[in-house]
């Protein structure tokens, strides 16, 4: 588990990374509930934050590829699968802690107004994995960290808009409402809406399963590219 432990060492060496991890989630806890949806706004937007945080974390693998330390690793007795798996596991742990802090603060700040925090936590944790998969797949398309990260910002906002995070998908033309189901953000938004409207917990099944499937698809895509 060397790779797993060193992810923490490397990531937290830069104090700014800790700030980056927590400042946005903590800030968005305090955004009040707006006209839509019936849940404090930050908790609906959180999926976009997760995409952003996952992108920052996943950047480590791109760094390894660009500075060729991955080449060295591939000469060592560690399989590429092990490498990816240990990295992802570490990122998942980090994001889960962030999710926990986020939901916990939410309960303190919003109290009764925050519907079923446990379900929200489950949704966020599953979506964290989807987001990590997405960042891995995204980075496999690029050679430079900066480029990948700066374009990603725009892509995340667009996915948020189209996926029903910024406004209900029903506001968009009919044909788009079907198409945006192909975006992971749609399912994240869908599941927080289910919680917000207090529908039964078992309705969460479909979105959660779809998010996991997205995660697997992204991982397969992202792990195809190995070196150089």
């Amino acid at each position: 588990m060397t790779i797993f432990t060193f992810v923490f060492k490397r990531f937290f060496r830069k104090k700014s990374n800790i700030v980056f991890l927590f400042v946005l989630p903590i800030g968005s806890v305090f955004i009040p509930t707006a006209a839509w949806p019936p849940i404090p706004l930050g908790f609906h937007y959180y999926s976009l934050l997760l995409l952003l945080l996952a992108a920052r974390l996943g950047g480590i693998t791109l760094e390894d590829r660009t500075n060729k330390t991955l080449l060295r690793l591939s000469a060592s007795p560690i399989s590429h699968f092990q490498y990816l798996f240990q990295n992802l596991l570490a990122y998942t742990v980090i994001l889960t802690v962030v999710n926990l802090v986020f939901v916990f603060l939410g309960v303190i700040v919003h109290g009764e107004n925050l519907p079923s925090p446990i379900l929200l936590f489950i949704i966020y944790t599953v979506f964290s994995m989807t987001a990590l998969g997405f960042s891995l797949a995204w980075y496999s398309l690029f050679r430079h960290m900066e480029t990948a990260f700066s374009i990603l910002g725009g892509v995340i906002v667009l996915m948020g808009m189209l996926g029903g995070v910024m406004w209900p998908v029903e506001a968009m033309p009919e044909y788009l409402q079907q198409a945006v189901m192909l975006l992971p953000t749609y399912w994240a938004a869908e599941s927080t809406l289910i919680v917000a409207y207090g529908t039964q917990a078992k309705d969460l099944g479909t979105p959660l399963v779809v998010m996991i499937l997205f995660c697997i698809a992204f991982l397969l895509l992202g792990s195809r590219r190995r070196l150089t």
Binding site: V157, L158, A171
Partner: peptide, 15 residues
């Protein structure tokens, strides 16, 4: 980022 993204965002918002 500075040309295509605003155009994309405007197009989505236009919807």
């Amino acid at each position: 980022i500075l040309l295509l993204l605003p155009i994309a965002l405007i197009s989505v918002l236009a919807l």
